[in-house]
Amino acid sequence: MRLGVVLRADTIIRDEGFRQRRVVTPYGPVDRVFSGKLSGTETHFLYGRFPGGRTPSWEIPYQANQSAFDELGVDHVIGTFVVGGVDKVVRGGDLVIPHDLVSFSGPQVSLPPTSGRFSNAHVIPSMCPRLRELLIRGARESGIAVHEDGLYFGFYGFARIETLAELELMDRLGARIVGQTMDPEFTLARQRHAHYAAIAVAIDSYHDMRDESDQDPEEFRARSREAIRYGRERFERIIAAGLASVAREPLAQVCSCARTSKGKHPDMFASFPEELL
């Protein structure tokens, strides 16, 4: 396993002596990668999906980020996220390990096929059960409370947060958290047959968002900053404990994330064979 993690892992980078490197990709250089080993596993931290200052989600260089992982031979990817809580049981500061996602729209990006022919990524199941097991193990061994499942709802296209009607719709659809950045990161990783899983921290809750107009913006920002700091510190602990656990005892779950068809056509989700068109 070569693991890529999208996380500003300051403590691990410092304490484990991870070295910064510049990875040249067809979409430009990525100079915020830190590489090293955790419990014997080659690990590469992408120090945030934003290059420098924060940008709108549709300006994130998703293709460059995934291409950097490609150049490094990464075959397992963990995305870390800051989200809003939709399910009423999620409060600000809660951690969630989603088991699936809904993504109706988003930045329209793809990567050239490695096989020479385009094929849609097979994404059932979406989140790799082996990587989810690693994260859940890590949380349990660290004594860190997490919601061990949840539906991530991808919300795109607007420089705003959700309307009340949108929140209520997501709630009815069974979403637990909402965010803007899991896809197309997830899709690009799955196009490469990489294993993908995620862990998120909620900066606010359904109740907070419903009552946003009654809140002091500075109090909200302070609470959000604290939730993000709390989440990042625990993401590091969970991932480190999960990798240490795997070094002692192999993962029990099996998955088909890396499976590719050996037949004439890449897979059932490929475009139709040309001779049938």
Rank of each mutant, 00 (worst) to 15 (best):
I228W: 07
A222Q: 11
A200R: 00
E236P: 00
Y206I: 01
R237K: 10
D214V: 06
R237L: 02
D204V: 04
I228C: 07
A202L: 08
R221N: 10
E218P: 03
F220N: 12
D216V: 00
A198C: 09
Y206Q: 07
S213F: 05
I203V: 13
V201E: 00
G231M: 07
A202Q: 00
D216S: 02
S205Q: 03
A227M: 09
R237Y: 02
R210K: 15
Q215D: 05
E236I: 02
V201T: 02
I238G: 14
F235C: 04
R232H: 10
F235H: 02
Y230I: 06
A227P: 06
F235P: 02
A202H: 04
D208A: 03
Q215M: 15
E233F: 05
E218T: 09
E236F: 03
Q215N: 10
D216I: 00
I238M: 01
R210L: 10
D204A: 08
S213K: 14
R232N: 11
R229T: 09
A227L: 10
I203W: 01
R221I: 07
R229G: 12
S205A: 03
H207M: 09
S224L: 13
S224M: 14
E233C: 04
I199N: 04
S213I: 07
Y230C: 08
E212D: 07
S213D: 10
E226K: 14
F220I: 14
D208C: 06
R234N: 15
E226G: 07
E226F: 14
E212T: 08
R229H: 13
D216C: 00
E226L: 14
R237V: 04
M209H: 05
S213P: 08
D214G: 13
E218M: 14
R223A: 09
I238Y: 07
R237M: 01
F235I: 02
A200Y: 00
M209C: 11
S224F: 15
I199R: 03
D211P: 03
F235Y: 06
R237E: 09
A198R: 12
G231A: 06
A222L: 09
D211M: 14
F220S: 06
A222M: 08
I199T: 00
